[in-house]
Design a protein around this nucleic acid. Sequence first.
DNA 1: TATGATCCATGAGCTGGATCAAATATCCCG
DNA 2: CGGGATATTTGATCCAGCTCATGGATCATA
Lengths: 256, 256
Amino acid sequence: MTADTNAPVVNLDSIKQACGTCSLGALCLPMGLDEKDVDELGRIVKRNRPLHRGDHLFRMGDPFHSIFVVKSGSVKSYSSAQDGDEQVVGFHLPGEMLGLDAIDRGMHSCSAISMETTAVCELPFDRLEELSRRLPSLQHQIFRLLSKEINREEEMLLVLGKKSAEERLAAFLFSLSLRYKRRGYSDREFNLSMSRQEIGNYLGLAVETVSRLFTRFHEEGLLEAQRKHVHILDMERLEGMVSACSSMVNDHARMC
Amino acid sequence: MTADTNAPVVNLDSIKQACGTCSLGALCLPMGLDEKDVDELGRIVKRNRPLHRGDHLFRMGDPFHSIFVVKSGSVKSYSSAQDGDEQVVGFHLPGEMLGLDAIDRGMHSCSAISMETTAVCELPFDRLEELSRRLPSLQHQIFRLLSKEINREEEMLLVLGKKSAEERLAAFLFSLSLRYKRRGYSDREFNLSMSRQEIGNYLGLAVETVSRLFTRFHEEGLLEAQRKHVHILDMERLEGMVSACSSMVNDHARMC
DNA sequence: TATGATCCATGAGCTGGATCAAATATCCCG
DNA sequence: CGGGATATTTGATCCAGCTCATGGATCATA
């Protein structure tokens, strides 16, 4: 779903190609939109220059204009309370969407920061709303998308409310594995784009606990972890540790 | 938002009256819909017979047809993992909505059970979708509604991920207080419709911890609690305990 | 008014994970 | 390449909140 703002006439083939691994592809291509509709959707998408590590995509309180889809790289979204402590709300991998929580108040209720060099698509929400009135299946997809995000967070509530540290990290790694797999990457070997600190924050655990768990998982032959690089050795056992909770198997607001 | 299925012709005044304390009122009346639109919305609403304590509104896995608004009484929604343990996802007071998480998969991903005698409005979602294509402000409101639910759960993530037992219970009570106040009830004195067990489950705490906290809050002069009846004595201090986290101040998917 | 059944309160440990402290390891940038 | 900043690991200790156990309230149904 790439549309250069300097090139109003969009070539359909190039859209399809660019959207191959993108959740927008799942939104617009297989969902009963005809080529004209796809083209229309393609027209409203803005492509921005890539973000570097540490760049903010938006900050809490910023006025809301668009939702975003990660095309490559990864983004962390986090909210901060008055007392200063932060909660990582999610990690967004390629094909995943963010900014949905800003629709309600018309401003972003969390911040989003790039964890590495990252490219995103920007979808101006007013245009998307307008277009979705004319394209019933698009409207339905957006409803589903929002609903999916609610589901994902409900599952996360179960993890934070009920699960042990071990189960949390297992669920987290299994979730990542699944999300990479769905996008055609290896589900057994990948690089974490987030630090132990950020994982701990996300899972409601101290850094030290996360570190110790990685060591223990390693000792138990569950995986090999060198710094950011993770190699899952025993997927069955990992899944077993998770299956207790079906959680976190959903992407961030993926379309299908 | 009452519409007897036996009376297709809806009287506008009676709708307005019935919707006075209902989030749908906030949805359809002040949001730029004219009387005709309000009437149209009124027509699609089904009123069901009241639920008794313990009746399920829907169960996890049930096919999704409608979203619901609590008119009176209260509803608990909870999800259960394979291993049997349950997580209370939310408590729904009059004017609050539930069922939004079912849109995505076309089936309910959590169960909803009445905690007392409860009346609900039922909104068939396909009709709502169709109507919202013709009424832009309705479409926008539904997007906002879904987004608000995402926000509410993000705040809850912060509570479960970062806050102490004391802060969690304080935030919970403050949230209830605020929600009652907004609906014109007393914000200082109300009856809990949920047990200590259910509060504990919701907040990720053991029953005993909840019970001890009530006792401590009582000793500290923060509140009086006799069983289900709660009387908040020092709202400022309660708010102070919460303000660290702005959390849980949002309703379940309230419209405005 | 019994008779369970359920809920709530409270005491006494126990423990999973937090916190504190310190030793590497890795990265970044001049 | 060097040196400071940052991330990770590991060890030692502590404690908030869990678990277990008990007894008292409250409620429902006969």
